[in-house]
Write a protein that binds this DNA or RNA. Sequence first.
DNA 1: CAACTATAAAGTGTCGACACTTTTATTTTT
DNA 2: AAAAATAAAAGTGTCGACACTTTATAGTTG
Lengths: 231, 231
Amino acid sequence: MASSPFDNDSSSLTLSDRIFEQIQTGIVKGDIPAGSKISEPEMAKAYGISRGTLREALSRLEERQLVVRAPNHGARVVTLSYEELVDIYQVREALGGLACGLAARNMTDAEIDDLKKLLDEHEQSINEDQGLSYYQQEGELDFHYRILQGSRNKKVLSILDGGLYQLMRMYRYQFSTSTPRPLQALKEHRRIVEALEERDAELADLLMRRHIRSARLSIEERQRNSQEQKG
Amino acid sequence: MASSPFDNDSSSLTLSDRIFEQIQTGIVKGDIPAGSKISEPEMAKAYGISRGTLREALSRLEERQLVVRAPNHGARVVTLSYEELVDIYQVREALGGLACGLAARNMTDAEIDDLKKLLDEHEQSINEDQGLSYYQQEGELDFHYRILQGSRNKKVLSILDGGLYQLMRMYRYQFSTSTPRPLQALKEHRRIVEALEERDAELADLLMRRHIRSARLSIEERQRNSQEQKG
DNA sequence: CAACTATAAAGTGTCGACACTTTTATTTTT
DNA sequence: AAAAATAAAAGTGTCGACACTTTATAGTTG
């Protein structure tokens, strides 16, 4: 079949595409602070582009809910509330489970093998620095990303990778919360991979949901604790 | 608390906002055919706007995956394949279940009552015209939309309402497939509402998932049949 | 006449300009 | 001196223009 420029050429992005990505990572990493106002002329100047190009990028960012816009009042970076983070984790639980169940059916043996190697690397990284490293933080997402890929479901991939992961990353950077229990998480990851190896979709689904849920619960607990201190 | 223009003012949309919505419904309803190329100058002229404004709308449409763009080659309306439709239903199953379980906890009694009334209307509409009416088709979505609202989870709402429902509507218009088994569907809806009334989150989740899954299975069956005829 | 090249038409990416709206600063009024 | 009115500055929404790329057309050559 002949390749058309529409099937993910990905080479030669447009300027607005690149700016979109730059701003996105800027927001996620906190270089552009959450809640801050975005002045179009100022930002356009900063990136050395025209306002029109910038506005195309902002439109996409708005659709991804990384910025909020009000007509005639401009754009602000989102501020993520505790409630929204819980919302996100709930969605992630449902979709992560779905993806993992599908992955048990659709991943190749080679892909599963690679996953196991990835976990070995994680273990080493944990032993070296108690899981505080940047690598460990992003490694968690890498693990989930591969399973997403393995699900072969484009929608679940685009929802999680295209939107939700960015928001979670943003939250992590902002409150600099690394994975709270790296060894426990690693154990759970290993169990998940076992289920994948055995092609047990139901179990894979269940384990992934439980894995994400326990992450959410530990966030909720932390929140309760910090609330007590105030009240 | 003072109201800021950023919390969903919704009054006085921008021109590009309105165009965005117009094009979206145009795509969903098939007035702008799936797979067709979009010429920016032509379309801008048709709507009586400038190309810059149009391009902002297209950027958002692209982010919603209703149009596909390739740098220097322009934009096309998506073409939805059978595989993608299955993907969508799988995601919908997972998220619909999540939303329904949450709704069992978070909907008000009044909201649940309204849901029951809605189902009564549906029953009448089915008796009158065997469920072939436009109303019946959109009514199905209305039911699901209210449960989404009731979940109080903004993310799941924005994912389903903001993106996936549009694609499903599009598919329905394109293949003019009304709900294949309206009476059965109604029965399932009633059971779901019962679970909501009893505040049984686990059951509500389960029933909703099963409800959506059976819709998917009937689509998959139809596909197999049409494949047989060819092969 | 098919295949290749050259040329014209159309289309996309990016920019700068201007009107109108909101915000900030300044002046006036009480 | 605080509040209201006014003026200035900044910012947003929308448009038209131009360079460069792709697609369509016509012409040329083997």
